[in-house]
């Protein structure tokens, strides 16, 4: 491929967990500190490929699969004015990805267009600016965000055209408290949930006519600052996967990282269904060596029924949410701690990032 830089794959080496198999490794020699990693579909000339997107503070790069588990960098966008904070993937969209830029919090969201049929170019443009607290890319090229100006909160959904430009906008009814995370309700295009700063779950109807706030339900006091990752509706109940970065250790559940909670939207009552706890340190709970003890969950991702997170020990853990068990643990490598853990578009492939910008792809 013209312009692509071939990379040598690193094969399975000294992994302690057999359920993760190293497939390949990407290293952007021009980038320093890894900020985020994601996957996206890239299509040209009638074919579609799953590509990797990596972000450093000042650039976003697109990586294309080559033969034999090798990857080549196809394009890099330079974003030098404001630091990149996160990649905002649009789940079922081809050739289009969004990024959030800012200092301590998101100040603007831009779309990056990978290929334009009109002029074969790589473009970028502003979608939204403001004090943005949360953003999520939804199915069908939609983007939802919450932002605050003084006491006023705006929750807005924007539909993007294939060329990236904003097509339609819709304001959703905001709750009183700040929305900190969003999740689509799988299989229900018009349903959206969010978690708020006072630990509530909010349900909206987003049908492009109304942005009604349908229900607000409290998560409970035992697990403060919950973040929603995924939601499913089944048998009249709303099941939400929550992470608990600030949860305390309890006798019944250890230190919870993720919980599956069932809500009855009619009565606003909830019940914990399954709890996935942090793995114990290698020395065990009673005599935990700080260098190997997985004390806290730092950041993570959920796809289907699999969850992954970077822990304070520098390890990456993987859980089966239906079993409520940790099924794989990737210890820090010789090059240092892991800082990023993301699923590709399926939970069969884990993207693990190191601080120096190296991204490892593991089959799970």
């Amino acid at each position: 491929t013209a312009g692509a830089e071939p990379l040598t794959p690193v094969l399975l080496d000294d992994l302690r967990e057999e359920s993760l198999q190293l497939l390949s490794k990407l290293k952007d020699s021009s980038s320093s500190c890894a900020v985020d990693v994601s996957t996206m579909w890239w299509g040209a000339a009638g074919s579609r490929e799953l590509c990797v997107v990596t972000a450093s503070e000042s650039s976003v790069s697109l990586w294309k699969p080559l033969a034999s588990d090798r990857w080549g960098k196809l394009h890099t966008w330079q974003l030098r004015e404001i630091p990149v904070i996160q990649i905002v993937p649009l789940p079922d969209t081809c050739n289009l990805v969004c990024v959030a830029l800012g200092e301590l919090e998101i100040g603007e969201i831009r779309w990056l267009l990978l290929y334009s049929s009109e002029n074969d170019s790589f473009e970028q443009s502003l979608v939204k600016a403001g004090n943005i607290k949360a953003v999520l890319g939804l199915q069908e090229r939609r983007l939802v965000s919450s932002s605050r100006t003084g006491q006023e909160q705006q929750v807005e959904m924007v539909s993007l055209a294939e060329t990236g430009r904003s097509k339609d906008g819709q304001t959703l009814m905001p709750p009183e408290e700040t929305v900190l995370a969003f999740a689509e309700v799988e299989g229900m295009r018009e349903a959206l949930v969010g978690t708020t700063a006072v630990n509530s779950i909010v349900v909206w109807s987003v049908n492009l006519k109304t942005g009604q706030l349908l229900k607000k339900m409290h998560v409970g006091y035992s697990y403060p600052a919950s973040i929603c990752h995924r939601a499913y509706s089944d048998s009249g109940l709303l099941f939400v996967v929550l992470s608990h970065p600030h949860a305390k250790e309890s006798e019944s559940c250890g230190t919870p990282a993720f919980r599956l909670v069932a809500f009855n939207p009619r009565t606003a009552r909830s019940a914990g269904v399954l709890c996935s706890s942090l793995p114990l340190g290698q020395a065990g709970r009673q005599r935990c060596d700080p260098s190997v003890c997985h004390r806290r969950y730092l950041e993570g991702d959920v796809q289907d029924t699999s969850a992954t997170a970077v822990l304070t020990s520098g390890a990456i853990a993987v859980w089966d949410l239906l079993l409520g068990q940790c099924t794989a643990l990737l210890p820090p490598g010789p090059q240092g701690s892991w800082v990023l853990a993301r699923w590709a578009t399926t939970s069969a492939c884990l993207l693990a990032g190191q601080r120096d910008g190296t991204v490892c792809l593991y089959r799970y």
């Binding site: 109807s205 109304t210 009604q212 009249g236 069932a262 009565t267 009552r269 909830s270 019940a271």
Partner: peptide, 23 residues
């Protein structure tokens, strides 16, 4: 609280809440 304590369940909760909510 267990799932059996969540009160009466409606399979059409989304449609019902949408109809009841102020526009």
């Amino acid at each position: 609280c267990s799932v059996s304590d969540l009160g009466p369940i409606s399979l059409n909760w989304f449609e019902e809440l949408s109809a009841e909510a102020p526009p």
